Simulated scan of single mutants.
Amino acid sequence: MNVIETDLPGVMVIEPKVFGDERGFFYESFNAKAFAEATGVNAQFVQDNHSRSQRGVLRGLHYQLENTQGKLVRVTVGEVLDVVVDIRRSSPHFGKSLTLRLSADNRRQLWIPEGFAHGFVVLSEVAEFLYKTTDYYTPSAERCIRWDDPTLDIDWQLESAPQLSAKDQNGKSLNEADLFP
């Protein structure tokens, strides 16, 4: 696997080694030993999640204050614009964001450590998004930052208004949100 550091320390792009021919392809989507050796991260994943969404659905920017989660994310059908925001007030990168296209075609994965908010918008007709988490989903600990917070200045590459859940419509601004120290 190839690991690419990003401008947000700790956030890494993972490119698996893909074996393909005229019949199709094969790749190891996760191997704990190889992941730890390549990234230096000894993550213990406890939950796998799978979502399917249509074009224009935007999910995020989500995080948990307790039972904080590291996430390893990827797309198996379609394409999304994935977004990560550093929400650690003590970080020199506080409020900085990273955007990256993840797709079934590029097979890239993104490692998002604890202390970051995460979201994505679907760019293809449909997308299936899979992610592993290092802690369990805890509804009472979940928080949401507004996807369109002007202080974040994120280019979501939208052609029209996104489709949002009620939770995402009611997200707080970065300045109002409960964040990490």
Rank of each mutant, 00 (worst) to 15 (best):
V84L: 06
L158E: 00
S51N: 11
R146K: 13
R107H: 04
V122H: 01
P16W: 07
N42E: 11
L58S: 01
F30L: 13
F116D: 01
Q47M: 05
V57A: 06
L164V: 13
S91R: 01
V41A: 05
H118V: 04
G95E: 04
R143N: 08
A104T: 05
I154A: 01
S53R: 00
H93Q: 15
D48F: 14
F19R: 00
N2L: 13
L164W: 04
E15A: 07
L102T: 00
N106T: 04
L123K: 02
S90L: 11
V75P: 03
T6C: 11
D21L: 14
I112E: 08
S160E: 12
S53T: 03
D86C: 12
P181T: 00
F120Y: 11
W156I: 02
T99L: 05
E114R: 03
N67K: 05
P162T: 08
D21R: 13
N2P: 12
P113D: 07
I112S: 02
R108S: 10
V80W: 01
N2M: 12
V83D: 01
A104H: 10
N170W: 04
M1C: 06
P9F: 10
R88K: 08
F116R: 09
Q109I: 10
E28P: 03
D155W: 15
P92R: 10
F30Q: 05
S91T: 09
V41K: 03
L98W: 09
I145S: 04
G10C: 15
K33M: 11
Q54H: 15
T138R: 15
G56P: 04
L61G: 00
S124H: 14
I154W: 02
G95A: 07
K167D: 11
W156Q: 00
S53M: 03
A177E: 03
P92D: 10
K71R: 12
S173L: 11
T138L: 14
F94W: 11
H62R: 09
Y137L: 03
E15M: 12
A43K: 06
E66H: 15
E22K: 09
D148P: 05
R107V: 07
S97M: 06
D105L: 11
T151M: 04
V77W: 04
I4W: 01
Y27D: 11
H62C: 07
A161M: 04
N31D: 14
D178F: 02
L61D: 09
R107S: 07
A127E: 02
V57L: 07
F26C: 15
F45C: 05
Q169R: 08
T6L: 01
I112D: 07
S173A: 15
A36L: 06
C144E: 00
Q47P: 09
G78L: 00
F19G: 02
N42Q: 06
G20L: 13
E125M: 05
W111V: 05
G95W: 14
G78C: 02
F25Q: 12
L174C: 06
R143Y: 14
E125K: 15
K172H: 15
K132D: 10
N42I: 04
T99E: 02
S51M: 14
A104G: 09
G24I: 07
L8A: 15
W156N: 03
R55H: 09
L100T: 00
T76M: 15
Q163T: 09
A177W: 08
I4S: 13
V122I: 15
